[in-house]
């Protein structure tokens, strides 16, 4: 798929992107390489996989990683109960060989996300979310899948992919990933969107919200993110939640009061809320007027009709 087609498809999904992202996605798609996305929490890493699934019109298969994730949860497991029952039922069968063979057939195989994604007839988008949460062991195990697009199941043999999935891995950099895994992937690092992009996202996702409010929210979020004292930076999803909440409350203007009342939607821990209380809310809510009025910030946030 070329760059222009991909851009068209993403436009159809109302997804806001920049040229870098579009290029990176095209490169990963055309090389058939898995895409490793890193960045802070809440910058929209997972969203990319979702958008790709609808842009490419493929199913999304998702594997959420966590500490202790192993093959039986990620790849396959034998349905042991069913096997036991089958043994009981067929106890008097004459052909023992066949019975044993049957026990390790597809019928008793429980497909987990990884196996499902490569055995699917139609190609899918495989999202391996938060790979940094999984153990190193699991990472090593992924290597075979990612580079050869096949997995080995001892009782069955090697299962080759019927279709090649587009693999997206995300990581919060909670621990460094192995070199071997990195080498097999195309790499993308994303940062929080700038004001313009964030505003575009709000407009695209919440078209019914007053434009003025959206602009105020976007600006306030940018300020919050750049405040050093705030430890958990607001994510894009939180920006959207906040905007929706303000809109639902019938607030048309982001005043210091409105900000204080709804701060819980954007800041999620007590320390950060305390920082907000200390900060002058005027700075967050009214600063953008200064750009227009040219008063150099002395106007104290007067309103321009």
């Amino acid at each position: 798929m070329d760059l222009i087609t991909l851009k068209q498809k993403m436009d159809e999904c109302h997804y806001i992107y920049d040229d870098t992202l579009a290029t990176v996605l095209t490169v990963a798609l055309n090389l058939g390489r898995p895409l490793l996305i890193e960045g802070a929490a809440g910058v929209g890493k997972t969203e990319i996989a979702k958008v790709m699934s609808s842009a490419l019109d493929r199913d999304l298969v998702r594997l959420q990683c966590y500490e202790g994730l192993d093959e039986s949860k990620a790849l396959y497991e034998w349905n042991y109960q069913k096997q036991l029952l089958s043994i009981q039922v067929n106890m008097n069968e004459a052909d023992k060989e066949k019975l044993t063979k049957d026990l390790f057939s597809d019928e008793y195989l429980l497909e987990r996300p990884l196996l499902k994604s490569i055995r699917s007839e139609k190609p899918v988008v495989l999202l391996i979310d938060e790979i940094d949460k999984a153990d190193e062991e699991f990472e090593a195990f992924l290597l075979e899948l990612l580079s050869e697009m096949q997995v080995t199941i001892p009782e069955v043999g090697t299962v080759k992919a019927k279709s090649i999935p587009f693999v997206v891995l995300t990581s919060n950099r909670a621990r460094p990933l192995s070199e071997a895994l990195r080498r097999r992937c195309a790499y993308l690092y994303i940062e929080y969107p700038d004001l313009e992009k964030e505003l575009a996202i709000i407009r695209a996702k919440l078209p019914h919200v007053d434009d003025r409010l959206s602009a105020q929210v976007a600006l306030a979020v940018q300020k919050l993110r750049s405040t050093e004292a705030i430890l958990k930076k607001p994510s894009i999803a939180e920006t959207l939640d906040w905007t929706a909440a303000l809109d639902a409350l019938g607030i048309r203007e982001l005043t210091p009061d409105a900000l204080r009342q709804t701060a819980g939607f954007i800041l999620k821990n007590a320390e950060d809320l305390a920082v907000l209380q200390e900060e002058d809310p005027e700075v967050l809510t009214h600063h953008h007027h200064h750009h227009d009025c040219g008063c150099g910030g002395d106007c104290g946030g007067h309103h321009h009709g």
Binding site: L3, T20, V24, T26, L36, E38, R182, Y187, Y189
Partner: peptide, 17 residues
């Protein structure tokens, strides 16, 4: 810029790289 992004995607494997 496009060439740079494309090559970076292929060659660089971490933020530092």
């Amino acid at each position: 810029n496009q060439v740079k992004t494309a090559l970076r995607t292929v060659f660089a494997k971490s933020r530092e790289e």
